[in-house]
Design a protein around this nucleic acid. Structure first.
Lengths: 341, 341
DNA sequence: GGCGTGAGCTGAATCGGTTGAGTCCCGCGC
DNA sequence: GCGCGGGACTCAACCGATTCAGCTCACGCC
């Protein structure tokens, strides 16, 4: 079968007996044609299966009709980390109605990520980008500002250069610590993500504040790269130390799952001797035994709102920081009262 | 800071004192300019930080410089399934050198997936697509052929409409069954993916054939949607039946992990009373305790080769089916000799 | 009847590349 | 000395949309 020909507005114009301009007005809902003519043109366009050429549109109005997302995490972390796929699902649903496309790029390091932005900008491939995993003094913000590429920050507020979509982790941190404290836990540790991520630091500050308020001595913190392997190693170290914690909180679910198998290895009972809490809830947490108590936040919602905010920003609207519903604690089988000393 | 201006070939032409055409020849490595002039133009372009406008290029030569991937799996499966992110990582690395972009779309159902292809084709957004999860009599093949949109099938060979990148599962199936049989397993079951996927059926045929060759009575098969939940349910059913299997093979790692927690729930020892094998190896398999024996295949390699094949196809080359190294069995802690009857 | 007005449409420029059809000049062969 | 070939460029059309400046009516109004 010979491939279909793609109709252009010129074809429609010919079929309707009007000029290209009239067709353009009709198809874009702009004044300049009578309602009769508009209806006729719309009908013809639909019958011909017309779609606007994204290239032509991009060329004439300077909009590409696409947004970009660069994910700069090593492949082995990405594979298993549910966060990104859920985020992407959410972004898609925020984009779906508008017909905007999503460009995805997975990079090896921060330099490659910056190069990707430069390329997308130079090639006019995207109208804006979503920024995840903000770092301290993140050079990407300056770069994007220099390029004039609109961006929305996902995951934490108060960035002067760009609007953001965020959740207040503080309340959830407080909730988790209060819950553990109420069950008698006093020695609580945290296995965190990389220290250079802003959200890691901020969550750390939340932990310190809440611990102080609750009269806890503090929360020991170990940094990792989010991988199960490092999560397991950190857990072994914590559980082998002199003052073994009675509860550990993990910055992602993958590490919490890894920790669970470490406890089995070491013959430590969960939740009898040790309570575990995962930050970020995914099917993974319900899959393992005992199921993991988790801090649940709607990651797709993150994506959806961020996409919508970016579209508004690209459209020239002033976009404020958007705060989403804070994460909630979902208690499951991995937490229980602290063991008697 | 005011946004940078994006240089065009006209700017370069003006700076070099030549015409736009000459600049185009120079930048594309075509004859028509002297080596001196070419070098000068290249130098100016580099200094100005020029990138070709993807829109302009797409408009004039009909190529968008992008390929598309539609993933039609429910969001909750996607989140945790490592396969797709690994595939995407691989695709990126196959694309990286060429400057081709990747468009990703996550859809709710098959209709939305077809609509996505129609849109991409109509808008000339992609030069070709990667096709995963082929179904029996897959309507997508006819659609893409009708549209004339080049496609490469990932995951199984012998499709008349499009070249494919695949691995021979048969050898691995044989290896797994022989391994289990050698350890005395006779009642072996399989928890498979959806029956409508071609690769599910083909693997089933491989199981039947190998079972027969090895003198096994056959392999019981239960179909699921790949989710941990259904994997767990299927496992409970299998383990509650009269002739309980001594070994179960899962079509993905997520279900195998879910199964492991079912065995804990039910007090069945792994691998003492039951052996488990996961198809597809990811960090997940190493994370749990006992670690899961798995059939490992290089998913990123899949993506890389598929991307390369698609680029060749788009470039007008004749692309044959490409067979990759077959998957290999990686024995870990979840398999052991069958229990004495 | 003349004139302004605005709806409804046309024509052409424009975006930034690619490309085929010229143009010009230089060197070479006879 | 003339013609020819070809290297090095220039020019302009073209891809498919958007958009602005007209143009042409019909109509209302004084």
């Amino acid at each position: 079968m010979s491939p279909l020909k793609r109709p252009t507005i010129a074809d429609i114009a010919a079929a309707a007996g009007v000029s290209k301009g009239a067709v353009s007005y009709a198809l874009n809902g702009k004044p300049g044609v009578s309602e009769q003519t508009r209806a006729r043109i719309l009908e013809i366009a639909a019958r011909m299966g017309w779609h606007p050429s994204s290239a032509a549109r991009a060329l004439s109005d300077g909009r590409s009709g696409a947004i970009g997302l660069v994910v700069d995490r090593p492949a082995w972390v990405l594979g298993i980390e549910p966060f990104f796929m859920q985020l992407i699902s959410g972004v898609e649903s925020g984009l779906a109605a508008t017909g905007t496309a999503l460009l995805l790029q997975v990079t090896e390091d921060a330099d490659a990520e910056e190069a990707a932005y430069r390329r997308w900008w130079g090639e006019r491939r995207v109208d804006g980008v979503l920024l995840v995993d903000l770092r301290e003094d993140d050079p990407r913000l300056a770069l994007l500002a220099e390029l004039g590429l609109p961006a929305v920050v996902v995951g934490h507020a108060g960035v002067p250069e760009a609007p953001s979509v965020w959740m207040n982790d503080g309340a959830a941190v407080r909730e988790v610590l209060a819950y553990l404290a109420a069950m008698g836990h006093r020695r609580i540790a945290r296995v965190a993500g990389p220290a250079h991520f802003v959200h890691t630091r901020e969550r750390g500050e939340d932990f310190a504040r809440s611990a102080h308020e609750l009269g806890l001595s503090g929360v020991d913190c170990v940094h990792t790269d989010y991988s199960g392997e490092e999560g397991a190693r950190a857990t072994r170290r914590l559980l082998s130390g002199a003052a073994r914690p009675t509860a550990v909180i993990y910055d992602n679910d993958v590490m919490a799952v890894a920790a669970l198998s470490v406890t089995q290895e070491m013959g430590i009972s969960v939740p009898g001797e040790l309570s575990l809490v995962a930050w970020d809830d995914s099917e993974l947490c319900r899959l393992v035994h005992p199921s993991l108590t988790a801090v649940s936040r709607s990651v797709p919602e993150y994506g959806r709102r961020a996409a919508a905010a970016l579209l508004a920003l690209v459209g020239g609207e002033a976009v404020p920081d958007i705060q989403l519903e804070p994460p909630v604690l979902v208690p499951r089988g991995s937490t229980a009262p602290a063991p008697r000393p």
